[in-house]
Simulated scan of single mutants.
Amino acid sequence: MSFSPDTLSAVDRSILEALQELIIVVAQLRDPEKGCPWDLAQTPQTLVPYVIEEAYEVAAAIRSEQQDAIVEELGDLLLQVVLQSQVASDAGAFNLEAVARGITQKLIRRHPHVFGDLVVDNAEQVHANWEQIKVTEKGETPELAQRLSRKLEKYAHSLPPLLAGFKISQKAAAAGFEWQTADGVWDKFREELAEFETALQEETTVEQQAELGDLLFTLVNIARWYGLNPSEALHGTNQRFVHRLEAMEAFTNRPLSDHTLDELEQLWQEAKAELARVRAGKT
């Protein structure tokens, strides 16, 4: 599908200029003679943690509803797309044009109700068509595409582990892999906890890791049984822990590392009480 000059002229030229500036800056950073040593040292693999980190920071900014933060974090994420493309281009693999054209063509293919003659009545039909087009693109047979393992594989490979575990747990339960009562999942938790404790005493690190994974997955299932989101729960705990450390540091003029364990415990309790007072609306 091609776009007419009228369509292209409707695009804000300042947006195209801004994108071009970013592309030029990143290319300069990767210049073999005048570029930045850090940027020149990067590979697609070394940049993966930054892609993940920036995606999470975008999500956090959106939740904060702070527009300046959203703009900044989206910019950081866009940088990762441009930088990955530049690194690949330097290696003779692909470039940003291939990335942009690829996603544009995919969007057109998967929206025949917008760019073609297909008629749909609701969002559910759009989703069904999208999934069918994906199957066709991948060259899979309908039977293969419907396999539960095939559906869950993408979660295991692409999502953060805790979120992947939650998604896999949900889909597996919907397919019948489920306990009959909550007591069953609690029994499984106690079984896995015992196996993990035994592994810590008697097994290798590899086996200990495996048993820890089994224990965490069972906790994910417990969360699902009670309608809780484990990712959001852990996010909340992380936030509370950081806030308590911040409150502890407000109660002392020395670094926390300079305190004894007893002093840290006292500061922790004071911080916990102070935050509880704040939540209760007291001063």
Rank of each mutant, 00 (worst) to 15 (best):
A10T: 12
S14I: 12
E17D: 15
A18Y: 06
A18W: 04
L19P: 00
E21S: 11
I23R: 10
R30A: 03
P32A: 06
G35T: 08
Q42H: 13
T43R: 02
Q45E: 10
E54G: 02
Y56Q: 10
E65P: 00
A69F: 12
D76Y: 03
L78R: 09
L79W: 14
V82K: 01
V87T: 11
S89M: 07
S89L: 12
D90I: 08
D90R: 12
A91H: 09
E97L: 09
V99T: 12
R101M: 11
R101H: 09
R109W: 03
H113P: 03
V114R: 14
L118G: 01
V120E: 04
E124W: 04
Q125R: 05
Q125P: 02
E131M: 13
K134S: 10
V135E: 11
L144T: 15
L144H: 15
A145P: 05
A145W: 13
Q146R: 15
L148V: 08
R150S: 11
K151S: 09
E153T: 12
Y155L: 00
A156P: 01
G165Y: 02
S169H: 08
Q170W: 05
A174Y: 09
V185P: 10
E191S: 10
E192A: 06
E195D: 15
E195N: 11
E197S: 12
L200W: 09
L200M: 13
E202M: 06
E203P: 04
E207T: 09
Q208E: 13
Q209D: 14
L215A: 05
L216A: 13
L216V: 15
F217I: 03
F217Q: 14
L234D: 09
T237F: 10
T237D: 06
R240C: 02
F241Q: 08
L245P: 02
M248Y: 00
E249T: 03
P255N: 10
S257I: 09
H259Q: 08
L261I: 09
E263D: 07
Q269E: 12
Q269F: 12
A271T: 00
A273R: 04
V278E: 06
